[in-house]
Protein backbone atom coordinates (compact mmCIF):
# COMPACT_ATOMS: atom_id res chain seq x y z
CA UNK A 1 0.00 0.00 0.00
CA UNK A 2 1.44 3.39 -0.93
CA UNK A 3 2.18 5.79 1.89
CA UNK A 4 -0.74 8.18 1.87
CA UNK A 5 1.34 11.20 2.73
CA UNK A 6 3.81 10.73 -0.13
CA UNK A 7 1.18 10.76 -2.83
CA UNK A 8 0.95 14.54 -2.71
CA UNK A 9 -1.11 15.14 -5.83
CA UNK A 10 -4.10 13.43 -4.30
CA UNK A 11 -3.79 15.73 -1.27
CA UNK A 12 -4.59 18.84 -3.32
CA UNK A 13 -8.00 19.95 -4.55
CA UNK A 14 -8.60 23.44 -5.97
CA UNK A 15 -5.11 24.27 -4.76
CA UNK A 16 -6.02 23.52 -1.12
CA UNK A 17 -5.27 20.68 1.29
CA UNK A 18 -8.01 18.06 1.23
CA UNK A 19 -7.13 16.47 4.56
CA UNK A 20 -5.83 17.60 7.94
CA UNK A 21 -2.11 18.31 8.25
CA UNK A 22 -0.61 16.76 11.36
CA UNK A 23 2.74 16.31 13.13
CA UNK A 24 4.74 13.23 12.07
CA UNK A 25 5.75 12.50 15.64
CA UNK A 26 2.77 13.20 17.88
CA UNK A 27 -0.24 13.66 15.54
CA UNK A 28 -0.96 17.16 16.80
CA UNK A 29 -3.22 18.90 14.23
CA UNK A 30 -1.34 21.72 12.50
CA UNK A 31 -3.84 22.76 9.82
CA UNK A 32 -7.46 21.76 9.25
CA UNK A 33 -8.71 20.73 5.77
CA UNK A 34 -8.86 23.42 3.04
CA UNK A 35 -7.06 26.01 5.18
CA UNK A 36 -3.76 26.16 3.23
CA UNK A 37 -2.79 26.70 -0.43
CA UNK A 38 -0.31 24.56 -2.31
CA UNK A 39 2.76 26.32 -3.68
CA UNK A 40 6.07 25.24 -5.14
CA UNK A 41 9.51 26.90 -5.03
CA UNK A 42 12.88 25.95 -3.64
CA UNK A 43 13.96 26.80 -0.09
CA UNK A 44 16.87 25.57 2.05
CA UNK A 45 15.23 24.27 5.22
CA UNK A 46 17.48 23.25 8.14
CA UNK A 47 17.33 19.55 9.09
CA UNK A 48 15.40 18.64 12.23
CA UNK A 49 18.40 16.95 13.80
CA UNK A 50 21.83 18.56 13.77
CA UNK A 51 25.20 17.24 14.80
CA UNK A 52 26.44 18.89 18.01
CA UNK A 53 29.86 19.44 16.50
CA UNK A 54 28.34 21.61 13.81
CA UNK A 55 25.98 23.97 15.66
CA UNK A 56 27.37 27.15 14.10
CA UNK A 57 26.73 25.88 10.60
CA UNK A 58 23.46 23.93 10.57
CA UNK A 59 22.90 21.44 7.77
CA UNK A 60 19.91 22.04 5.52
CA UNK A 61 18.16 20.44 2.55
CA UNK A 62 16.37 21.86 -0.47
CA UNK A 63 12.61 21.63 -0.02
CA UNK A 64 10.20 22.60 -2.79
CA UNK A 65 6.60 21.63 -1.94
CA UNK A 66 4.78 23.84 0.55
CA UNK A 67 1.41 24.65 2.04
CA UNK A 68 1.21 28.43 2.32
CA UNK A 69 -0.79 30.20 5.01
CA UNK A 70 -1.37 33.96 4.88
CA UNK A 71 -2.68 34.52 8.42
CA UNK A 72 -0.76 32.84 11.25
CA UNK A 73 -3.97 32.41 13.22
CA UNK A 74 -5.22 30.04 10.54
CA UNK A 75 -3.00 27.39 12.16
CA UNK A 76 -4.78 25.02 14.49
CA UNK A 77 -1.63 24.37 16.55
CA UNK A 78 1.90 25.56 15.72
CA UNK A 79 5.04 26.98 17.31
CA UNK A 80 7.11 29.92 16.02
CA UNK A 81 10.85 29.92 16.73
CA UNK A 82 12.90 32.98 17.57
CA UNK A 83 13.85 35.06 14.55
CA UNK A 84 16.74 34.01 12.30
CA UNK A 85 17.38 36.60 9.57
CA UNK A 86 14.03 37.27 7.89
CA UNK A 87 12.46 34.07 9.13
CA UNK A 88 10.91 32.29 12.05
CA UNK A 89 10.87 28.51 11.80
CA UNK A 90 7.66 26.57 12.41
CA UNK A 91 7.43 23.66 14.85
CA UNK A 92 4.83 21.30 16.20
CA UNK A 93 3.10 23.10 19.09
CA UNK A 94 2.95 19.94 21.20
CA UNK A 95 6.22 18.03 20.79
CA UNK A 96 8.22 20.92 19.30
CA UNK A 97 9.54 18.85 16.43
CA UNK A 98 10.76 21.06 13.63
CA UNK A 99 11.39 22.94 11.49
CA UNK A 100 8.26 21.78 9.70
CA UNK A 101 8.46 24.96 7.64
CA UNK A 102 9.14 28.66 8.04
CA UNK A 103 7.48 32.05 8.39
CA UNK A 104 8.64 34.86 6.13
CA UNK A 105 8.53 38.00 8.30
CA UNK A 106 8.35 40.68 5.52
CA UNK A 107 5.39 39.05 3.73
CA UNK A 108 3.89 37.50 6.91
CA UNK A 109 3.32 34.28 4.95
CA UNK A 110 4.01 30.89 6.56
CA UNK A 111 5.12 27.86 4.55
CA UNK A 112 4.73 24.26 5.78
CA UNK A 113 6.88 21.67 3.97
CA UNK A 114 4.75 18.77 2.70
CA UNK A 115 7.59 16.32 3.34
CA UNK A 116 7.81 17.19 7.04
CA UNK A 117 4.18 16.64 8.01
CA UNK A 118 1.50 13.99 7.62
CA UNK A 119 -1.80 14.24 5.77
CA UNK A 120 -4.53 12.29 7.53
Amino acid sequence: MPNCSENYESEISDGKNIRSITCKFCNSVILTPTSASFTSFEFQLPLMRQSKTNEQNPESEAVSLFWSVGDMFTFQNVGFSNTVGNNKYLTCADCEAGPIGYHDIPSKISYVALTRVLHC
Binding site: F25, M48, K52, S81, C95, E96
Partner: peptide
Protein backbone atom coordinates in the same frame (compact mmCIF):
# COMPACT_ATOMS: atom_id res chain seq x y z
CA UNK B 1 8.86 18.75 25.21
CA UNK B 2 9.14 15.25 23.82
CA UNK B 3 11.51 15.82 20.93
CA UNK B 4 14.62 15.83 23.07
CA UNK B 5 18.33 16.01 22.33
CA UNK B 6 20.82 13.21 22.82
CA UNK B 7 24.58 13.17 23.33
CA UNK B 8 25.52 13.68 19.69
CA UNK B 9 22.69 15.50 18.02
CA UNK B 10 20.59 18.48 18.93
CA UNK B 11 17.31 19.54 17.42
CA UNK B 12 17.63 22.67 15.33
CA UNK B 13 14.66 24.19 17.16
CA UNK B 14 16.02 23.66 20.67
CA UNK B 15 19.16 25.54 19.64
CA UNK B 16 17.34 28.66 18.46
CA UNK B 17 14.41 28.51 20.88
CA UNK B 18 10.68 29.03 20.56
CA UNK B 19 9.17 32.52 20.57
CA UNK B 20 5.45 31.72 20.87
CA UNK B 21 2.85 29.08 20.10
CA UNK B 22 -0.60 29.18 18.63
Amino acid sequence: FRFSDDAFTTTFISTIGIDFKI
